[in-house]
Nucleic acid binder design. Structure first.
Lengths: 242, 242
DNA sequence: TAAATAGTGTCTATGAGACATTATGTA
DNA sequence: TACATAATGTCTCATAGACACTATTTA
C-alpha cells in the first residue's frame, strides 16, 4: 500500500539530518516623492551591519513540526512590511521579485533572501513609522541609495527591483500604486517619467491616457486640481469589477 | 569601534536558535518535441510521493559554518540539472523563475522551493538520462503533465514556467535555446507556435525574421534543409560578440 | 505534372514619435 | 496682460495583421 508506506516514512523522517539555510524576506518599498523614485531604508540597530541602512525585512517564521510549518512566504512579506514600516499591506502593491542566494551574502550564516518589491501611493507616506528591528526609517532617492553604503547585497536587490518596475510599468497597471487615489494626467505622466527616467511627450502621453479612459481602465473623477496655473481635470482608476 | 564589535558579534552568533526551512531547487526543463511543448519529469523513488512524477530538483547544499556557507543558489540549479537529467548546463538556458513557499507544500517539513526553468535544444535530447534520486526520466507534453498527477505543487510551477517562457519569447532571444544550432525559418516559426499556442502567419513571421537577419542577430548558414518538398534555407543565431 | 512547402508582395489599420497650436486658469 | 501649464490637433513613419500570389523541389 503506497499510502501506508508513505505515512510510515513521514512519521519516521528526521529533518535534522541536513544543514539548512535561514530564509529571509527583504522588501524594496518604492514611492514617488519630490519628483524622484525613492526607496524606504531602515537603519539596522543590531549586528551585522549595525548602524548601516538596509532594506526592511526579516526571517521567515518556520513552525516546529511537519503539521505546523509556519507562515507562507507571502505572509512573511506582508507581516514584515507592516511591522517594520507601518504600511497596511491591503493598500500597497506587493509582489515577489527574485531570490538572492549567493553563499556569503550574510556574514553570520547561510541566508537565502526572497526579495519582494512594494509600491506605495504618495498619500500613504504619513503612515510610515519605524518598528520591529529598525530604529529609524528614511526615504532615500534610489539614485542616492545606490551611491551610498548598504547592508548585505541590498544594492543589487534595489537595482533588480527598479528594473522590474520600469518593465511592468509599460505592460500592467502598477502605476495605480504610484499616484494618489485621484490624479491628473500630468501627475500620472510625472510618475511614469520618474520610474522610466525619461521625459515623455505630453501630447503623446495624453493620447495613451485617453485610450485608457476609452477602454474603461480610468474614469473621470469629480473636481479639478487647482494650482498656480490652469487647473487640470482629475481622474481615478476604475475599481476592479470582480 | 564598529568593526570590532561586529566581529565579536559574529563570533558569538548562534544560528541554531531559530527554526529554519529546507531550501530546494526545482527545475522546469522544457523543449519542443513532436510539435509539442514538453517538460522533463523524473519518477520519484523515495518518499514522499514515491512513484509519482515530479520536476527534477533537490536540496540546496549548505555549508557547516559562517565561513563555509555551501553552494550558490544558481550553482545548485546547474548541479541538479546535470545530476538528475545528464544535460550539460553550459548548453542549456537556465534562469530563476519564482520561489514557492507555502506552508505545507511538502508533507515532510517546511520546504521553500526556488524554481528555475531551462530550455533545451532538440538536438541535445539524446543526452538525457536518469540520475541521482530519479530512476526514470520522461518527456511529457506540458498539456498531459498538467492533466495528470504530479508531486508537491509542481503543477503550479510548470504553469508559471510556461507563462514566463511565452512572455520572454516575444521580447528576448530565448528561442535560440529551443531550436537546433542551425534551423530554417519554418522551424523557428514552429517553435514560436508551440510555445505561444497560436498559429502564426508565415509571411508576417518571415518579415520579422528578416529584420533579425538585417540587425545581425541571425545569419545565413551554409547548406539547405532537404525534405520531401522544396528545401529551405538554413540559418543560425550569430554568436555573441563579447 | 501534381503535391507540398518555401518564399514574396501588397493593402490597410494602428500606434508611436515629433512637433505646432489653442485654451484656460493665476499672479 | 503676461505667464504657466492644460489640452488638442496633425503629420509622418514603423509595424502588425490579413491575405494573395509566385517559386522550387520531390514523388
Amino acid at each position: 500500500m503506497r499510502k501506508n508506506s508513505e505515512h510510515q516514512f513521514l512519521t519516521q523522517y528526521r529533518p535534522e539530518d541536513f544543514a539548512r539555510p535561514s530564509v529571509a524576506v527583504d522588501i524594496v518599498v518604492l514611492t514617488v516623492k519630490s519628483a524622484e523614485l525613492c526607496v524606504l531604508l531602515v537603519q539596522r540597530n543590531e549586528h551585522p551591519f549595525k548602524g548601516t541602512w538596509a532594506l526592511p525585512g526579516g526571517f521567515l517564521r518556520v513552525g516546529p513540526s511537519a503539521k505546523e510549518q509556519g507562515e507562507d512566504l507571502d505572509a512573511a512579506a506582508t507581516r514584515e512590511l507592516e511591522e517594520e514600516t507601518g504600511l497596511p499591506p491591503a493598500l500597497v502593491f506587493l509582489e515577489q521579485l527574485h531570490t538572492f542566494g549567493k553563499a556569503g551574502r550574510d556574514p553570520r550564516m547561510r541566508v537565502v533572501s526572497v526579495a519582494y518589491y512594494a509600491l506605495v501611493r504618495p498619500d500613504l507616506l504619513p503612515l510610515v513609522r519605524p518598528g520591529g528591528d529598525a530604529s529609524h526609517v528614511r526615504w532615500t532617492s534610489v539614485k542616492a541609495a545606490l551611491e551610498g553604503e548598504l547592508a548585505f547585497d541590498h544594492h543589487g536587490i534595489i537595482e533588480a527591483a527598479t528594473e522590474r518596475v520600469a518593465e511592468k510599468l509599460e505592460t500592467t497597471n502598477i502605476a495605480k500604486s504610484l499616484v494618489e487615489s485621484t490624479f491628473t494626467i500630468p501627475e500620472l505622466r510625472a510618475a511614469f517619467e520618474v520610474v522610466s527616467g525619461k521625459k515623455l511627450d505630453h501630447g503623446n502621453f495624453r493620447r495613451k491616457f485617453n485610450a485608457l479612459v476609452l477602454s474603461g481602465v480610468i474614469e473621470r473623477a469629480p473636481g479639478k486640481r487647482v494650482t498656480a496655473s490652469k487647473p487640470a481635470a482629475v481622474y481615478r482608476f476604475r475599481p476592479a469589477l470582480e
